[in-house]
């Protein structure tokens, strides 16, 4: 891997064309994130935090400017390449957990491996990973609707980690959890960061932001 930044935003602007007016969600944002960084993004509602995360997460393309992930420009990528980037290089953790309702906890974690390798995963690997995030084998065969929010978020983290991505993106990962569970989740994220994952996390909570090495504040689509 090169020594350059894992993620590099160069003059990224994102404009949503609405009927009444154009909404500038990101306004000429430039940002470099190094390998192993743990960054918190803060800012008022509607300031563009999720939009920023979506650009890094290859879910969206900027209106102008460019995002480089491991040196590759996402503007140059087609839909399949962006999709494979999300599958192999990026782990996404959402405020609302977003597990696949039709699959069990075990299958949710196994799913990205099947997508990538086109074959079933080793049982020990999945169960081991679930163990790491604090889900035992009995819970592994429940579907998301049968689990608590904290349990679902643990499974979502295991799913985000299963393909061993370089980057973890978390959009308010503790937003739907009580503070005790939130703390447990944050301790876990800190451990993964110490093991070398680059983490970018959106939060409203300064206490949660305290887990990060660096906090970026964004307002009206601009980094302050």
């Amino acid at each position: 891997m090169s020594d350059g930044p894992v993620i590099s935003l160069a003059d990224v602007t994102k404009v949503y064309h609405m009927l009444a007016e154009d909404v500038v969600a990101l306004d000429h944002v430039s940002l470099d994130i190094a390998h192993g960084d743990f960054i918190a993004i803060m800012g008022p509602s509607g300031s563009g935090k999720s939009t920023l995360l979506n650009q890094i997460g290859c879910l969206d393309k900027p209106t102008s400017g460019d995002v480089l992930i491991n040196g590759r420009s996402i503007r140059q990528m087609n839909d399949n390449e962006l999709t494979d980037m999300r599958r192999d290089t990026i782990g996404y953790i959402f405020q609302t957990f977003n597990l696949i309702p039709l699959l069990t906890a075990y299958e949710n974690v196994e799913y990205p491996i099947i997508l990538r390798d086109k074959t079933r995963a080793e049982r020990e690997k999945i169960l081991g990973l679930l163990q790491t995030v604090g889900i035992d084998e009995a819970l592994a065969h429940h579907t998301p609707s049968e689990l608590s929010g904290g349990q679902q978020q643990r499974i979502a983290i295991a799913r985000a980690l299963v393909n061993n991505p370089d980057i973890l993106l978390c959009d308010e990962p503790t937003g739907n959890l009580d503070s005790k569970t939130g703390t447990q989740i944050m301790e876990m994220l800190r451990t993964f960061n110490e093991q070398g994952k680059t983490i970018i996390m959106v939060t409203h909570d300064t206490r949660i932001a305290g887990y990060a090495q660096r906090t970026i504040t964004i307002q009206d689509g601009r980094i302050r």
Partner: peptide
Amino acid sequence: VKEIGILRSIGTRKSE
């Protein structure tokens, strides 16, 4: 729709 969004966001291709 939501489920499709999840599947796509974690790396499921359109063809899949």
